[in-house]
């Protein structure tokens, strides 16, 4: 299953995603997609280095899927984490145009 690597930035807690050059972006849409388990393992190893270097904390991989031509988080939890609270659209990444292009069907029905 394709994965994206995420973490929180140590100093301010902001949710970040690993990019193709091994850096971290606040924008889910700039995340690199690990297409298989080998790629996920290698990306997690890079994330572990960044945790050791005290750049980020709590790094982990989560599943993504392609919907309407866009890569989106598969689970509601990750969709909310990548966008912001569904009950406060004025807050979080969604308020700055950084949300995933479209979320799982359940997302946003509130």
């Amino acid at each position: 299953m394709p994965d994206v690597i995420t973490a929180n930035r140590l100093a301010d807690g902001v949710v970040v995603f690993q990019t193709a050059d091994g850096a971290w972006s606040e924008d889910f849409n700039r995340a690199t997609v690990c297409s298989d388990a080998v790629a996920t393992k290698a990306a997690l190893a890079r994330a572990a280095d960044d945790m050791t270097r005290n750049l980020v904390v709590d790094a982990y991989a989560f599943a993504v899927e392609t919907r309407n031509g866009h890569v989106v988080p598969k689970a509601l939890r990750e969709a909310i984490r990548a966008a912001g609270p569904t009950v406060r659209r004025d807050l979080g990444k969604q308020a700055h145009g950084l949300a995933p292009h479209s979320g799982p069907a359940a997302f946003g029905e509130a």
Partner: peptide
């Protein structure tokens, strides 16, 4: 101080 879904 917790680390929550979006932030601390």
């Amino acid at each position: 101080l917790y680390l929550q879904l979006h932030s601390y």
